[in-house]
Amino acid sequence: MATLTLSSRASRASRFSRGSGPVQPRFTFAKVAITVGSVLLALLWLVPLLWAIDTSLKPEPETTQTPITWLPGAPTIDAYRNVLDQGSILRWFLNSTIVACLVTTLTLVVSTLAAYGFSRTTFPGRRVLFGILIAGILVPPQVLIVPLFQEMTGLGLVDTYWGIVLPQVVAPVMVFVLKKFFDGVSRDYEDAARVDGATRLRIVWSVMVPMSRPVLGAVAIFTFIGAWNNFLWPFIVTTDPAMMTIPVGLANVQGSYGLRYAQIMASAVLGGLPLLVVFALFQRQVVRGVGDAGIKG
C-alpha cells in the first residue's frame, strides 16, 4: 500500500461543508459531454467486475463458448455452491478478518503511543531514535522478505497469526504522520488535564485520541484495507493453507479448480466482495478520511 502523508492541520468540517465543485454555467454542450464521458469511464471501470460476476453465474460449459455471450443463458449459483463447499474460503475469510483487525488495532495503539512519546516527552536518545524511525520509512518491506522469513523460522512464527501480523504493525510512516499531527495540537488541553492530575497515558487516551479522530480514522481505514489485501508477506509467511488469508489462499489453491472458469470467477467475486460492500456503504467516510486528514501537497 502506498503511504499517506497527512498534514498536521486539524482542519475539519470547513473543507467538506459544501463539497461542490467549480462553479459552472447551467447547461452547456460541454457539460453534457463531460457527464456522458464520466459515466462511460465509470462503466468501462465496472466492466471487468460485471464480466466476472456474469461468468460466475454461467454454467461451466457456457463459459468457454465462442463467440462470447453476455448474459448467462441459464443462470446458476452452482459455482458459488461448489466454491463454498469444497474450498477453504470461509476459513480464509476468518483468517483475513482476524489478521486485518489485529494489524489495525495494534498499529493504532502502538503508533499512537510512540507518536505521543516522540511529540510530547523528552528522554535521552529521543532524537536519535526518531532519526532511526525516519530512516525506517525508507526500508521497503519487500526487500526484507528473505531475512524476515528466516527470522520467523527461528522464532517459530511461520504459519501463525502473529507471524503474519507483527511485521505489518511496524509502520514508521504512521508514527511519523501521527507525531506531526500531535505536534500541531495545542498543549493547553494537555496542561489543563495535567493540572487535574491526569497521568500521561490518560492524556493520550482522553485528550490526544479524541482530538485526532480524523487522522486516526484515516490511518485505521488504510491500514485495514492494506492488511486485508496484503499479498506478499502473508504469502511468504504462511505455508499451511489453513492459515492463509483470502488473497494468498485464492492464489495458492486456484489450481484445484482446474478449468472451471465459473468457479474461479465465483471465488474471485467472493474474495473481492466484503471490502467492496463495506466501501459501497462507507464511501463517504473513506473519501472524507483522506480529505479530513489533510493531504499535504
Binding site: A42, I225, A268, Q283
Partner: peptide
C-alpha cells in the same frame, strides 16, 4: 456512482484482480 466505480477496484486483493484479468 462515479466515485464508487473509480475507486472500487482498489479495495480488492491482488489475487481477485488478477484472477479476473487473466480470464479477461
Amino acid at each position: 456512482f462515479l466515485r464508487f466505480s473509480y475507486f472500487a477496484p482498489f479495495v480488492m486483493p491482488a489475487t481477485v484482480v488478477t484472477l479476473i484479468w487473466v480470464w479477461i
